[in-house]
């Protein structure tokens, strides 16, 4: 009898300890997510229904903020312009990122060389994105390095104007900033592909191109999906690059939102934030539907 109760007590204590350990493992991350993500989201969700005027905001439950936002042609224009940038940046970083990853993983044989080249890709990211963005200005400017080189080489007699403060300079910056975000997950997926599969495909008579198309692309699609999510969300959430590199000619969803915040119009800003979150959510869900990203993360 006594031993049985002792055993029960021990089992009970063991269960409690296991429960505690689980919570200690999950706890910190959960706390960060709750405090810094869930709570603010909830907050601006609530505020988005509030009423406001020039002097303050008033608790209420009105849909005016959403109605105003969704019926203004400017909103649709901005979403369209941002999506145009996002799709272009996505397509270009995808091609670049895929081929750089392919080169690094399958064509570089020495592990040391591969490491050095990976570092060469990653080292620029040790400085801030803002600095790397601004660094393009003296390069692409009217009297910048690139125009000077072109003129010295007599390739053009007048400086090219479209290089800076244009859609072009915005795209150049996006590609520079985000290609690594695309490349890294793809390279990660590719590194997990068994090299024997490539040999087996070659044994079956597949050409290089067929190996890429039939073996490597299907097997790195989770990396492609992860990279796509990263690039899309970065461009859609961008505010600094568009503002700085377009010379104020283009706006983004977030830059419009920040204008409202600067004007202390919190409820409409909150409403456009909610719409943006939903928009990005749908986009990511769409990508996840095509490719099961969790499968990749679990491996």
């Amino acid at each position: 009898m006594i031993t049985a109760t002792l055993g029960e007590k021990k089992a009970h204590a063991r269960r409690r300890r296991a429960w505690l350990v689980s919570w200690m493992q999950v706890g910190p991350m959960a706390a960060v997510l709750l405090l810094l993500f869930a709570l603010p989201t909830l907050l601006f969700l609530v505020v988005s229904f509030f009423d406001y005027d020039r002097v303050g905001i008033y608790p209420a439950f009105i849909l005016d903020n959403y109605r105003d936002l969704l019926t203004t042609p400017a909103t649709w224009r901005i979403y369209l312009s941002t999506m145009r940038f996002a799709v272009m940046a996505w397509a270009i970083t995808l091609v670049l990122g895929f081929y750089i990853a392919l080169f690094l993983v399958f064509h570089i044989r020495s592990a040391k060389t591969r490491m050095i080249l990976f570092m060469a890709c990653a080292v620029p990211f040790w400085t801030s994105g803002i600095i790397r963005t601004i660094a393009w200005i003296p390069f692409l400017g009217r009297n910048g390095a690139f125009n000077t080189i072109l003129m010295k080489m007599h390739l053009t007699d007048r400086p090219l104007e479209f290089l800076l403060f244009s859609d072009f300079s915005v795209m150049v910056t996006y590609i520079h900033l985000y290609t690594l975000l695309m490349m890294a997950p793809i390279a990660n997926s590719m590194a997990k592909i068994d090299k024997n599969l490539i040999e087996a495909a070659r044994d079956c008579g597949a050409s290089r191109f067929q190996i890429v198309r039939h073996i490597i692309i299907p097997l790195s699609r989770t990396g492609i999906a992860l990279g796509s999510i990263l690039v899309f969300t970065q461009v859609i959430g961008d505010y600094f690059v568009v503002k700085r590199m377009s010379g104020g000619q283009s706006a983004s969803i977030v830059s419009a939102l920040s204008t409202e915040i600067q004007a202390m119009q919190y409820p409409p800003a909150a409403a456009s934030a909610v719409v943006l979150v939903i928009f990005v959510g749908i986009l990511v869900a769409g990508i996840m539907r095509v490719v099961d990203v969790r499968q990749e993360l679990a491996r």
């Binding site: 040999e199 087996a200 008579g205």
Partner: peptide, 26 residues
């Protein structure tokens, strides 16, 4: 033709597509 030690079957293709692969690329 080679049979690999770990078999090296293409994990994203069904058995029949694995076997048909050499014909597919031709």
């Amino acid at each position: 033709a080679m049979m690999f030690q770990n078999y090296a079957l293409f994990p994203h293709l069904t058995c029949i597509d694995n076997v048909a692969f050499s014909m597919q690329v031709r």
